[in-house]
Amino acid sequence: MIRRYGESVKPGQRYKRRPGVYAVLLSGDSILTTFQESPAPEFQLPGGGIDPGEHPVAALHREVFEETGWRIGNIRHLGTFRRFCFMPEYDFWAEKLCQVYLARPIRPHGPPTEAGHTAVWLPVTEALGLLGNAGDRAMLTYALGLPA
């Protein structure tokens, strides 16, 4: 069973399944996050949707680069969770199936290429309180070996 975080499923609401990949990018006592300005300003684990026919790890490399400008390596799967939410940028309700990976940030190659995103290094202790969704916070907690 895949754990669900966030809003409950709304009875009668149709959801579009949206598989995605996200990265916990640790370096020492810091984590590389993305700050997304809209639709609501929030810190997030870098990542996003997997395009049709795209391998999840290829999608992870692409999404992390688009949202942070960094290349990554040493990738391993951490876990998977689900979120049910409205995605205003796409104008639909989604069942987000979020695969989360632990990876090492290798080096920056410039600013994020995706509009509205800023790469931000945060102390992990701050990130645990600042990440915008409970699933991201749970995956960071797990990656750090902290009790849930």
Rank of each mutant, 00 (worst) to 15 (best):
M1E: 09
M1C: 06
I2W: 05
E7K: 05
K10T: 15
Q13H: 04
Q13W: 06
Y15W: 12
Y15I: 02
K16V: 15
P19F: 01
G20E: 12
V21M: 03
Y22A: 08
S27C: 02
G28M: 14
D29E: 15
S30V: 08
L32M: 09
T33E: 11
E37Y: 03
E37D: 14
E42G: 07
G49W: 07
G49E: 14
I50H: 01
D51I: 01
P52Y: 00
G53V: 03
H55G: 00
H55F: 00
V57L: 14
A58W: 01
A59H: 07
A59K: 08
H61Q: 06
H61S: 02
R62K: 02
E63Q: 14
F65L: 06
E66K: 08
E67M: 13
G73H: 08
G73N: 04
I75C: 05
R76C: 03
H77T: 01
H77P: 00
L78D: 11
G79Q: 11
R82G: 02
C85P: 04
F86R: 13
M87T: 13
P88W: 02
E89Y: 08
D91S: 11
W93E: 12
K96M: 07
C98T: 04
V100E: 13
Y101L: 06
Y101D: 06
Y101W: 03
A103R: 06
R104F: 02
P108F: 00
P111F: 01
P111N: 01
P112H: 07
T113E: 10
T118E: 14
A119W: 02
A119D: 11
W121M: 05
L122N: 10
L122G: 05
E126T: 08
L128K: 02
L128Y: 06
G129V: 06
L130M: 15
L130C: 04
L131I: 06
G132H: 12
L140Q: 14
Y142K: 15
A143H: 11
L144A: 10
G145L: 13
P147F: 09
P147S: 13
P147T: 09
